[in-house]
């Protein structure tokens, strides 16, 4: 009986602890980033899993590692990948329909050559479905030209 009463009085102290925690949060700075005026740091974006991109080749950074084996196309549950084989092993066209992609990562895991990875693109915007059909070979080429001299990974 007395213990029950004492427990209840001790419970009041925990209420004060709760109030002090929210009170501290009330006066501490906000975490929100007001997007159009501020942007997130690149360090935080490193863990963001955005649309797919082709990784760079080990010997030639401008080339893809893709061997056109179609493993990713088979693994994809949304049927959003189209890989057309070129003359050699390397693909001639690599189309990725982001509007169908569920970002499950099955293609990344299925790829035997390690040619696929998630990019860190947060600000991808499109006004039609056609715009979301991304040509990843062109994307790789653009990235290579942008970051000349290319690094060897």
């Amino acid at each position: 009986m007395l213990k029950a009463i004492w427990d209840n009085i001790k419970g009041l102290y925990s209420l004060l602890v709760g109030l002090s925690i929210t009170g501290r949060y009330l006066v501490s700075p906000r975490k929100t980033i007001h997007y159009p005026r501020q942007v997130v740091d690149d360090e935080i974006l490193a863990s963001f899993r955005g649309p797919l991109e082709l990784t760079r080749g080990r010997k030639e950074p401008g080339q893809t590692r893709c061997i056109s084996c179609q493993m990713c196309v088979r693994a994809c549950p949304g049927h959003c990948l189209t890989v057309i084989k070129g003359d050699a092993k390397a693909p001639s066209r690599w189309i990725y329909d982001f509007s169908l992609c569920c970002l499950c990562g099955a293609c990344v895991e299925a790829c035997p050559a390690g040619a696929l990875a998630f990019s860190h693109k947060v600000y991808l915007v499109a006004t039609s479905r056609e715009e979301l059909k991304l040509d990843l070979l062109a994307d790789l080429k653009a990235r290579t030209e942008k970051e000349a001299p290319p690094k060897n990974e």
């Binding site: 929210t22 949060y25 009330l26 006066v27 501490s28 700075p29 906000r30 975490k31 929100t32 007001h34």
Partner: peptide, 13 residues
């Protein structure tokens, strides 16, 4: 506003 500040977001802005 208080709800936002306690949850460390800006509230109406």
């Amino acid at each position: 506003k208080v709800a936002g500040f306690i949850q460390r977001r800006p509230g109406p802005y």
